[in-house]
Structures are given as C-alpha cells and as structure tokens.
Amino acid sequence: MIQLYHVYKSYLKGVHVLEDVSLTVSRGEFAFLVGPSGAGKTTLLKLLFSAESFTDGQVIVNNYNLANIRHKNIPYLRRSIGVVFQDFKLLNNRSVFDNVAITLEILGAGKNDIRRRVTKALKQVGLQYLEDKYPLELSGGEQQRVAIARAVVNNPSILLADEPTGNLDPDLSVEIMNILNDINAMGTTVLVATHDKYLLGKFEKRTIMINKGRVSEPI
C-alpha cells in the first residue's frame, strides 16, 4: 500500500522536482508511472524506499510514515519493497546466484533456504540455467531479469521497477513485463516507471501520468 499526500520535493529553493503529488496505489494493484525523461519518475520511486527525502507532505508505505521514519527502521521498510533499478545495480564480481542471494543473506537465512529460494526466483525469471554466470557474461535482458529475481526473492509486498525495459528491444520488453505481471498475479503490488508507450498499449493497466513533477491520471 502506497499513499502520497501533497508531496513536494525540491533540491533548490523554489524549483520543484515533485509538486503537490497525491496518489494511492492499493494492495495488489499494478500501475504504470508514465512520463518523459526528467519528469520526476525516478525521484518519486526513490521517495518510496527512502533513498530520497521529500520537502513537504506525507508518504506512507506499508504502514511506515516516511515523513518521520527513523534511520534504523529504513532497512526494514526496504526489506518489504523489491526494487528493480534502471541500471540494474548488480555486483559484477559475484555470480548470478550470489547477486540474488544478497537479499536473503542480510536476513540471516540459512544456506539451504537460500539455495531453495534463489533457485525458485531464478526459475520465475527463466534464468535457472545461468546461476553460475557473472553479470558481465549476460545480455542486457538477462541482467534485467537477474535484477528482478533479486527484487522478488524475499516475496516483497511491493515491487518498484524503474524503466525495467529501458534498454531492451520490444520482444524482450514484453517478456520482462510478462514476468512483472506474473509477480503481480501472486499478490505483489507493482509500480513500474516507464516512458515506453508501446508497453502501455500492450498491457492495459492503471496509468499515472507525471510531467514536470506534477501527477495526473487520465479519466
């Protein structure tokens, strides 16, 4: 559950990156956050897992009030959210398996548990046969899927994806969106930031428009 009330974000005084943003994404919903480059999509996503602070307003994510969340609680908020980053953020010196396992290692999961759940997540994104490879040995689409597997391996209640198809050709983009759709079908709230109009036509989902830091929804 994501709720924003009159949220403002500015880096310079008077210059708003986000301006009076109010929106709600309900539990189990799938929504696109759509807008041109520089519209504020990434900033908005970053607010939701406390990687950015906001200047004014209220943000509530999974019952955490981010306006006054304590530093020590931020890790627990993040554990309830899976994030697929635009630049993947994979560790090139770790295998695919180990990249996905990071999310479980921080929770103190046992070796067998990690093996079982990572294998399941890699299967979900169709990469189980690549678990011993390193990120630089993979294509862009495969790296993207590793990033998704890492984001979902801990069964988060929310999945945020920032331009998950940004660098991919249309066929691969559809493949990735199908994976996200499947994850949503299992009950995870999914919010995907994109500027890919082709996908919007192909997947009929709720669309939240963002432009120059202001949010609107087509009626």
Binding site: P75, R79, V83, K89, L91, I102, T103, I106, R150
Partner: peptide, 16 residues
C-alpha cells in the same frame, strides 16, 4: 562502495 550501496538498498542494517 558499490556493494555497500546495494546492501543498503536491499535492506541491510548499518550493523550488518
């Protein structure tokens, strides 16, 4: 530093 950033983003505590 890359690893530390990723650990933070996936929810590792400072202590961890």
């Amino acid at each position: 530093r890359d690893e530390i950033e990723i650990l933070k983003l996936v929810g590792a505590t400072d202590g961890f």
